[in-house]
Each structure stands twice: as C-alpha cells, then as structure tokens.
Amino acid sequence: MTDLSCPIGIVVVSDRASAGIYEDRGGPAIEAWLANVLTSAWTPLKRIIPDEKDVIAATLIELADEHKCGLILTTGGTGPAPRDVTPEVTEAVCERLLPGFGELMRQKSLLEVPTAILSRQIAGTRGSSLLINLPGKPSAIGTCLDAVFPAVPYCIDLIGGPRLETDPAKCAAFRPKGS
C-alpha cells in the first residue's frame, strides 16, 4: 500500500540542541501545532542540526529535493547573533523568496514582544517545497504559524506540492473558489 501522507520537514537549527546540551522545544512546538491544525495525512521528517551553513543547506536541499516535502519549517538561527545564519542559507537554496511571510510574522510578533524586530525569518520556494523560517521560542512559533498558515496550503497548491487541508475551526486556510 502506498503512503499517501504528505512529508513535512521540521528543522531545528541550534548548536546546543544538536549537541544535546539542552532539550529542543521548538521542534515539538511545530509538530504539536501542525497536529492540532492539519486534517490531511502528514508525516514529520525531523532534523536537529547545528548552526552551520553547509549543514543547514544540505538538510533543506535533502528535504525539498529528495523527500519532496511540500512544507519545510525551520526554527532557530533567525536572530542577529553571529552564528544565526538560517535566513541567509534559506535564501541561498530557494528559487523564489516570499517576503510577505517574514513581514507578517514580525508584525504579529511585535504585538507580543518588542524584540521581535530582531527576528530575520524569511520564506521561499524550492521546486514544489515551501520553506518558512520560524523563531526559536515555542510561543513565538505558534504566533507566527497562526499568522501565516492561512496562506500556506494555497501557496503549496500553486507550486505543485501536495494538498494540505486544515480544520477551519483552528485555521481557516484560504483558497479561491474552485481551487
């Protein structure tokens, strides 16, 4: 029997979590948010990696090109610290950037914390994959996903990725009539 679930990449970018120095909370926050909102079948492909440009790039490319993840969500590495390089690597591996995602995530996060202006998360596409950088703080992950996810399923439709369905009571995904 063929597995019809959509693979979704969840990438934790953290030197300390990848070294086992602290417990990752960002990856589980993403997975829990998705489990609460998505009604279509999906499978998480989880990675915990260090803040190393080559490792981040190889991981994003693997999830997009080899595993055909329709959605790849990263957490961590989006601040102004010298080792925070997730946005630069995401930009380098994407074919197209979607600046509205980062703009909206920062706008919504600023309503909760003034340091959200320091966040540099971006989004873009690679083939039929949508890549979105999220902050590392679990509560900020929910804020950002709540803000942008209504546009995510239709974006994935437009780039030829797998169809994602949401529970409209939890996230009203927008699709034009007839889509």
Rank of each mutant, 00 (worst) to 15 (best):
residue 29 A to Q: 00
residue 8 I to C: 05
residue 60 L to I: 06
residue 126 R to Y: 04
residue 34 L to P: 03
residue 158 L to R: 15
residue 33 W to D: 02
residue 95 E to Y: 09
residue 3 D to F: 14
residue 96 R to I: 14
residue 133 N to T: 11
residue 131 L to Q: 10
residue 137 K to W: 00
residue 151 A to E: 15
residue 50 P to L: 14
residue 141 I to V: 12
residue 15 D to V: 05
residue 95 E to N: 13
residue 141 I to H: 03
residue 160 G to P: 05
residue 57 A to E: 02
residue 170 K to A: 03
residue 106 R to P: 07
residue 21 I to D: 15
residue 85 V to I: 13
residue 101 F to H: 02
residue 150 P to I: 04
residue 114 P to H: 09
residue 128 S to I: 14
residue 39 T to R: 11
residue 157 D to N: 10
residue 81 A to I: 12
residue 52 E to F: 04
residue 7 P to C: 09
residue 24 D to A: 06
residue 155 C to E: 08
residue 108 K to F: 06
residue 62 E to W: 10
residue 10 I to M: 03
residue 29 A to F: 01
residue 70 G to N: 04
residue 10 I to W: 01
residue 62 E to M: 04
residue 48 I to P: 13
residue 111 L to D: 09
residue 122 I to D: 01
residue 117 I to N: 13
residue 138 P to I: 06
residue 138 P to N: 10
residue 95 E to G: 10
residue 73 L to E: 02
residue 79 G to K: 08
residue 134 L to M: 00
residue 125 T to V: 09
residue 136 G to Q: 05
residue 44 P to C: 07
residue 61 I to G: 00
residue 34 L to Y: 04
residue 78 T to P: 01
residue 41 A to R: 14
residue 171 C to N: 08
residue 169 A to H: 14
residue 169 A to M: 12
residue 154 Y to D: 09
residue 56 I to F: 00
residue 168 P to A: 09
residue 104 L to D: 01
residue 163 R to F: 14
residue 125 T to D: 03
residue 171 C to V: 14
residue 93 V to H: 15
residue 76 G to K: 12
residue 137 K to C: 13
residue 14 S to W: 05
residue 13 V to F: 10
residue 77 G to I: 00
residue 81 A to Y: 03
residue 28 P to T: 05
residue 14 S to M: 07
residue 176 P to R: 08
residue 34 L to C: 10
residue 21 I to W: 11
residue 129 S to M: 11
residue 21 I to F: 05
residue 113 V to W: 08
residue 77 G to K: 01
residue 91 E to G: 13
residue 115 T to Q: 12
residue 156 I to N: 00
residue 122 I to G: 02
residue 76 G to E: 02
residue 111 L to M: 13
residue 30 I to Y: 05
residue 111 L to I: 04
residue 156 I to K: 06
residue 116 A to E: 13
residue 116 A to S: 10
residue 9 G to Q: 03
residue 163 R to P: 10
residue 62 E to P: 04
residue 67 H to I: 04
residue 147 A to F: 05
residue 88 E to K: 15
residue 107 Q to G: 11
residue 163 R to E: 10
residue 29 A to H: 07
residue 74 T to L: 01
residue 171 C to T: 07
residue 112 E to K: 15
residue 74 T to Q: 07
residue 73 L to G: 02
residue 2 T to S: 15
residue 59 T to W: 03
residue 174 F to N: 08
residue 89 V to W: 04
residue 150 P to G: 00
residue 95 E to A: 09
residue 159 I to W: 01
residue 38 L to N: 05
